[in-house]
Amino acid sequence: MLHTVNKSPFGNDTLETCIRFALPGDPILLIEDGVYAVQARNRFGAMIETILKKNPLFALQPDLSARGISVITSGVTTVDYEGFVELVEQHQVNSWL
């Protein structure tokens, strides 16, 4: 199952909640304000590292670019909208709002 998260972790516990329910191996895709979670050197670095031990983590490149985020936490994969579609091809979707 693909989980999408669209909220900044600074103002919202959506990412935290999502990872509590995601099963090992489920990919998680950060979109919209969700991408702030993977800006390098922010305070969520350790949390991202923990997530990556269990789940592949993706961030939508157009949303990173739109927010001026050029350096992201290592281990996170960037995808464009086409990559987003590819993830949806492979998995049912759980869109955390």
Binding site: F21, L23, D26, Q92, N94, S95
Partner: peptide, 18 residues
Amino acid sequence: SSEKIGTLMKEQDVIIQH
């Protein structure tokens, strides 16, 4: 538990978050 709910989520054809 969260684990049990997570397992149920995985079994779904469709999940709608409100």
